[in-house]
Design a protein around this nucleic acid. Sequence first.
DNA 1: GTAGGGTTAG
Length: 583
Amino acid sequence: MPLPLQILEDPINSLIQRCPDMRTLRQIHAHFLKSPLGSSAYGLSKILAFSALSASGDIAYARRLFAQIPNPNVFSWNSMIRGCSLVPEQSTEPISLYKRMLRSGFAHPNSFTVAFVLKACSIVSAFSEGLQVHCHALRYGLFSSPFVQTGLLNFYSKCEKIASARCVFDEISDKNLVAWSAMIGGYARIGLVNEALGLFREMQEVGIAPDEVTMVGVISACAKAGALDLGKWVHAFIDRKGIELDLEISTALIDMYAKCGAIEKAREVFDGMDVRDTMAWGSMIVGLAIHGHVKDALELFSAMLDSQVKPNHVTFIGVLSACAHSGLVSDGRRYWSTMRELGVAPLMEHYGCMVDLLCRAGRLEEAYTFVNDMPIVPNSVIWRTLVVGCKNSRTFDEAETAAERLLQLEPLNAENYVLLANLYASRCQWDKVSRMRKKMKDHGVKVVAGCSSTEIDGFVHEFTVGDDTHPEIEEIREMLRDIAERVRRAGHEPWTSAVLHDVVEEEKESALCEHSERLAIAYGMLKTAAPVVVRVVKNLRACGDCHEVTKIISKIYGREIIVRDRVRFHRFVNGSCSCSDFW
DNA sequence: GTAGGGTTAG
């Protein structure tokens, strides 16, 4: 009498459990094929799962094996879908597999399938596919699975459909820690700090204790909002609750402190870490670089290399931008070579740093040649950097070419027209200035309202230009006049008082971006008169004038003020992360 | 019968 299949299969199971590498797996596979069980779906799916999912697996082997299975069961489909999502190169392969699975009609998706496909959709932001998976989840009655729920929530959040994510969240009757963390992280990712923190409070009210992952989300919300007081409170909360200051939390704290202007606190956290990975070093180096602590940033980079931690593309953005900010052209070139030697392939952003480096050092010709020699097609950021360089140097003749390329690439970005109008104005080419205004009108391009934010008593207030709906708008204007007057009396001519005068008097219609920003920031500064210490995150680029205003205002009010990073602001308002020299 | 959600840096 033959042995029951299950008993015979047990050795395969335990063999696979103990399998150390692919070489052993191939032996197990060969042995298995020769055995009487050679065609059992269970054994094959175990072998497939190892090659597709295990850390020592081989997805190519899994693909070959999978192709030979005539009618894969749901377990095998799931292994392949998940396995293909785990490869570092993002692809739509898992989604195609899922479609094939549905078409095959042999296996039906279960909660694992749906969770894995949703993850794949969120990695590549495949919104319409994910929507269909949502329908399937409902059709197959899989919404009750907490894994499907979190998968959906996270999918919408990664696609920046935060309202849909919230709908899913609200529909979850039994919200666990993961669901709360995912929703908080979703709000944090797009900078909705009040929502993130509100939910964090709610979570505690219903008795769910946050863990390390929740805290990373909360800290990153503070970082995005420039909310230093809140960030400090969260740090104290972590200490108080005995939550472990692990690698991820420490890195998030470094980033938060750096973005909120408290670079010393960032360094404190960094110095207190026992283990530091690429991201921890990277956050600290980038933090120092954006604060203009170029020497420290470069020293830290050397220390990183000494510690045998491999730098990645972000590390080099920190290093190269540090060089750019200090005009260290030859150092920048040296680091560029180091980057190549260490096998970090330069991305568009790195080319951008080099163009910036050359432009800031006044080497416009070289920058222009560098752009023309780029092996990848330069994007709008590269051209804009070059145009900004032209505007500042006033001697370079290729500005027109750069300007044309910029408008070709981004005909609908208001920032470009403003920049070009400023460029032509700086050269007294008034006909071209008005041509820009006309072009802008023809394209129906509207200036995006400037916006700034300040944190007061744990709540982040946003101010948008032209928004007169504030109930105290008259008082606000009065106070702005008062600030302008104090600035004038403090003798800080010429432009600071002019700016604040503009702030009050400038007509909305004629206000170009730069005025909008000043107005918005003045609104933010206005809040410094409130009986709390207000911090606005430091402007990161071309911040000379901005610093000046900050110094004056802080002198007047005797308070610490940091001006909000307008790069992040721009990213938040219109999805653009470009930065040109408005100040 | 096998397995699985949420995590930070420009």
